[in-house]
Design a protein around this nucleic acid. Structure first.
Ligand SMILES: [Zn+2]
Ligand SMILES: [Zn+2]
Ligand SMILES: [Zn+2]
Ligand SMILES: [Zn+2]
Lengths: 140, 140
DNA sequence: GCACACAATGAGACCCAGTATCAATCCCCC
DNA sequence: GGGGGATTGATACTGGGTCTCATTGTGTGC
């Protein structure tokens, strides 16, 4: 479950403290995207004594390591998605929050063309796809 | 300058009030992206009596009409970009905030392929490109 | 041009995400 | 097992954005 996250953190030379283990477990138990507020609520519901600040700090750490990625939802909320530390994008179900990963984004051609026309150099890009997962589509 | 915004609002059946005209003028005077806080600062600097709430309300309205688009900066801030109400994306200079528009995003193929593999239906997408404009690149 | 119904405004309180601070505590390595 | 530096949590704080509501301003029909 959360072993994967913990192993990756350990590998990166991060101390595996009690609170971090507990938060990692909370993340592992979630599916789809989640917000910091979700984790804070989870933690308080289970009366783990972890503070808000610690949760934000761990999320920053995980994001740095690419183990989690920030997604900006269409409504402006900031959410996180657990993911592989390689370049890819996310397909977000707007109904239930389920996530699918898009491995090869294939927009290098798009960025190259945009760069040529505009004269900008392009350092990075962000692509998010929003729709409905198979479950939510049929449940409709 | 701001006539374009005002005309579009009028066309949409929105009341052209004094505060809205003033805020539209502030937006027209900006170039590149701006945040709500920027506009609030502008307004207070010129001692226009417009309230914070009015600025947020107009931004929502403009966004609804597609006259302005929300951009999530890499650092998580929410900014706005004045733009045409047609599908397109933005190329944002991370150094000075300059904006270029990418007319044809050309990622329909990407979304179609992602949809096929994942079983999701895709309603919308968001693509943002970050880099440096020609000025900032040479100024380096 | 005038009055009226109703949308819009602004002041302020309010809420929530995220950050800063700092003394107490905990890991990890020796 | 001990020591030193990283981590933690309580708390205060900031800043973005929303809500409320009494007051004002707009467009409209006459
Ligand atoms: Zn779904
Ligand atoms: Zn990509
Ligand atoms: Zn620039
Ligand atoms: Zn597009």
């Amino acid at each position: 479950m959360s072993d994967e996250l913990l192993r990756a953190l350990d590998q990166a030379g991060v101390r595996l403290t009690g609170p971090r283990r507990e938060i990692a477990a909370l993340i592992a138990k979630r599916n789809g995207h989640f917000t910091a507020a979700d984790l804070i609520a989870d933690a308080s519901k289970r009366r783990l004594g972890v503070g808000r600040a610690t949760i934000f700090r761990l999320l920053d750490l995980l994001a740095e390591q690419g183990l989690v990625e920030r997604v900006d939802l269409p409504d402006g909320r900031h959410a996180y998605v657990p993911c592989e530390p390689s370049h890819h994008h996310h397909l977000v179900c707007v109904a239930c929050g389920a996530i699918a990963e898009v491995e090869d984004c294939g927009i290098d051609a798009v960025t190259a063309e945009a760069s040529r026309r505009s004269g900008f150099t392009i350092d990075s890009h962000r692509l998010e796809l929003f729709g409905r997962c198979p479950n939510c589509r049929s449940a409709n």
